[in-house]
């Protein structure tokens, strides 16, 4: 994975979505406190996704430091809020816009949409904050396979939110608890990681680079036979509405083995769609032809 996609957990630019592998509660407490203070110093509303001892410890620390902490977000002036960890917040409904099938409220937004990161960021800005900062210890949330699969799907939505809304997110995972393979599974749907946690990243793209009715994402890093299975699973979890075509910008995918291309072909079959690789290298384009893949097409840089 290119070092371009590795950043520290703190002192990162706004709208950065970071997967952070920490080791033990003490490290979480230390770094998360710095991350929280940094957000408060930048006049961002900070949201701590609660539910674990580590998060509760962080909130207690901030209270002790005299910060205002409210148990749930309400329109007003709180600068630090907590919210029980809830998958629907991360999912934000079915799309990165927060649109979902949930029932509409008086202001026209569904319940899920009002809990989407994009909506919460808009509220923070409306309240005079520079944006929204979210910090979470998601170790427990991804411990079981079933919940991890939901998490990966939702996390990509979070990633998309940071591309277009003033949201900055730090997702912590205790790698000693989970093991590197599990962390790699969830790391691949973040735009940045604190260390080489996954050989590839499945990143959201800015809205202006998406094409109407086609789901467009970016693949960065390297995918070989060892990681092709992770790519296959990531595509299936992340892409829920293909519109018939998934466009994947591979301009920053520095290596794609034939196993990666076969994985995309299998994923496209499973989703009954076509995968279009944009900005593919000449050798990648040749491999697609050589392998006679009928669900993957590859184009060069326009």
């Amino acid at each position: 994975m290119s070092s371009r996609f590795q950043v520290p957990a703190v002192a990162v630019p706004p709208q950065t979505h970071v997967c952070w592998a920490f080791r033990g509660a003490r490290e979480f407490a230390h770094v998360a406190e710095r991350y929280t203070r940094e957000g408060l110093d930048r006049h961002e509303r900070v949201l701590v996704l609660d539910g674990q001892d580590t998060a509760r410890g962080l909130v207690a620390t901030m209270r002790a430091a005299g910060r205002t902490v409210l148990p749930t977000q309400v329109r007003g002036e709180p600068v630090l809020v907590t919210l029980s960890w809830a998958p629907d917040l991360r999912a934000g409904g079915a799309s990165a816009d927060g649109a979902s099938a949930g029932g509409p409220s008086a202001d026209g937004a569904s319940a899920d949409a009002r809990r989407s990161p994009r909506h919460l960021a808009a509220e923070a800005v409306a309240d005079g904050f520079a944006g929204l900062r979210i910090v979470t210890d998601a170790t427990e949330v991804v411990r079981s396979r079933e919940r991890r699969e939901r998490f990966v799907a939702a996390e990509h939505v979070m990633d998309a939110a940071t591309v277009t809304a003033p949201v900055t997110i730090l997702c912590g995972f205790d790698v000693d608890e989970l093991g590197p393979a599990t962390v790699a599974e969830v790391a691949c749907v973040h735009s940045f990681t604190t260390e080489p946690l996954s050989p590839f990243l499945f990143r959201a793209l800015p809205q202006e680079r998406t094409v109407a009715r086609e789901r467009t994402v970016a693949l960065a890093g390297e995918v070989d036979s060892a990681s092709a299975g992770d790519l296959y699973r990531a595509v299936l979890r992340v892409v829920t509405d293909t519109g018939g075509t998934i466009r994947i910008d591979v301009s920053e995918a520095h290596f794609m083995s034939h196993a990666a291309l076969l994985a995309l072909d299998r994923a496209a079959r499973a989703l009954d769609c076509t995968v279009r690789l944009d900005a593919a290298s000449p050798v990648t384009r040749w491999m697609v032809r050589f392998l006679e893949l009928d669900r993957v097409v590859a184009a060069g840089t326009p």
């Binding site: 076969l262 072909d265 392998l291």
Partner: peptide, 16 residues
Amino acid sequence: SREAESGRGMAIVHHL
């Protein structure tokens, strides 16, 4: 077969 997850690497190397 196309369903196989790999196994074509050496064919690609020899071709390229």
